[in-house]
Nucleic acid binder design. Structure first.
Length: 108
RNA sequence: UAAGCAGGCUAGGUAGUCGCGGGCGGUUAAGGCCGCCUGAGGAAAGUCCGGGCUCCACAGGGCAGGGCGCUGGGUAACUCCCAGCAAGGGUAACCUUAGGGAAAGUGCCACAGAAACAUACCGCCUUUAGUGCAGGCUCUUGUGCUACCGGAGGCAUGCCCAGCCUCUGGUAUUCCAAACAAGGGCCGGCGCAAAGGGUAAGGGUGAAAAGGUAGUGUAAGAGACUACCGGCAGCCGGGUGACCGGUUGGCCAGGCAAACCCCGUCCGGAGCAAGGCCAAAUAGAGGGGCGAUGACGUUGCCCGCAGAGCCCCUGGGUAUGGCCGCUUGAGGGAAAAGGUAACUUUUCUCCUAGAUAGAUGACUACCCUCGACAGAACCCGGCUUACAGGCCUGCUUACCAC
RNA sequence: CGGGGAGUGGCGCAGGUUGGCAGCGCGCAUGGUUUGGGACCAUGAGGCCGCAGGUUCAAAUCCUGUCUCCCCGA
């Protein structure tokens, strides 16, 4: 149940081997493997200052934590926040995460 | 009450649920699990200064370079803070100021203007010789007066003569005065152009023009002189001092040093990826260059110091290894004392993040003014910048009431 | 953490040293040339020199603060 983090060298592997989906708030990469769930959140400098980037990353992690019981707990997930994610509310962000997971077929 | 000035505080709250970092305790063979406590800011930001701390065979000298610049204090230190001085602004409370030196030197001051720091364009005055104009005085000559002899023209008409009128020539003729004309001399005046000298009042230009204003004075003028004001220097008095007040003297001095510079003063270098310990890997190998004639290092350079390794390339191993540094510190709060204050001293009391891809978010309920700027990364002191709203204190001005 | 550089017409740049005119090339507009287009020729528009404050008579230039971007080293 507890989601670990993805170590920095694995990011390139996820980008190359995983599948991706995107909407206007987030870009998601997913790589399937039998290991437990690991999560990475990318909040680039384009989003804003440190405070804004921290808030976006925490919200994405919270969203992921909420949807985790609804799906198969394995694989590596990377969420990249787009610029619009810095301005939206938590509810919009939660909808965006669910939308991406449904489109990837990982969640009902 | 309104407008304003100065300073300070705060940074949504309460309750519950889930989740995260750290510490402690319990439990488990271990992974882990459970409980309790604790968990971002006034700016954590920008990285602009100053320190602590760590390392550099030690920290020394000289040059270069850089910072600072009214005075006195505070501080570990500062470009910071406090108190004051001066200048400028504001009715005032109060605010702003990189505020040493321009008689050490160099440089710049566009355009305009005669001239931008030392001269003289116009102007004013004067001298010299010249020239022009009008005038005064004087001298000479002539005319003017009379007589005679002529000439020309007109009246004037066909011609001539006479007469008269006008103009004019010659001869003779005394004096004086007036008048007129011409010429010469002298005198002063006015003007013109030239040369020499005096002057810096005035004019115009400019951001800025030789202390300002008024008067005396003078050939014209001028601090040449006088009064007041401003600046400078000396002396006296006050103040630790910047400076202030008084008095005397003589007018010599444009601005820019956030232009070079001079003077005074300060600065060794690097930075927690500092630095130290441990572990793993066959972990070191090959080639080239420099080096006891001193490499590398110590500061950019030189001296001095120190001392045997150092640099580059090739192809590899391990790895985004672990631990310490890492949070108790120039620390916060209260009281007393000293000080105008910044601040200092003493006593009591409190412990309050230490992450390492980097911990704080979400939901529910209620309340209100509906919540800004924004996230620690070795640590402090400052500065600067960003910031919704709310609260408090003191003061100024205006109005009203007493 | 430390160091360096750049912001000037739409684009790329000079001018900054020694303060006084804001310029160059391409592009744009208009006219000419051509049957038409391109090229060429002529004319013109377009700038508060990133922002704010200061020094100075005067600031793109000097000083201070600030914002944005880029690069380098560990």
């Amino acid at each position: 149940m507890v989601s670990g983090r993805i170590p920095a060298p694995s990011y390139g592997r996820v980008y190359e081997e995983g599948r991706s989906a995107a909407n206007k708030y987030l870009v998601m990469y997913y790589r399937d493997d039998p290991l437990p769930v690991r999560l990475g959140v990318v909040t680039s400098k384009r989003l804003g200052k440190a405070c804004v980037r921290n808030r976006v990353r925490r919200r994405v992690k919270e969203c992921f934590r909420h949807v985790l019981p609804l799906m198969e707990p394995r694989g590596e997930f990377i969420f990249i926040a787009r610029r619009r994610a810095a301005l939206c509310t938590y509810q919009e962000l939660l909808g965006a995460v669910k939308d991406l997971l449904k489109r990837m077929g990982l969640m009902e």
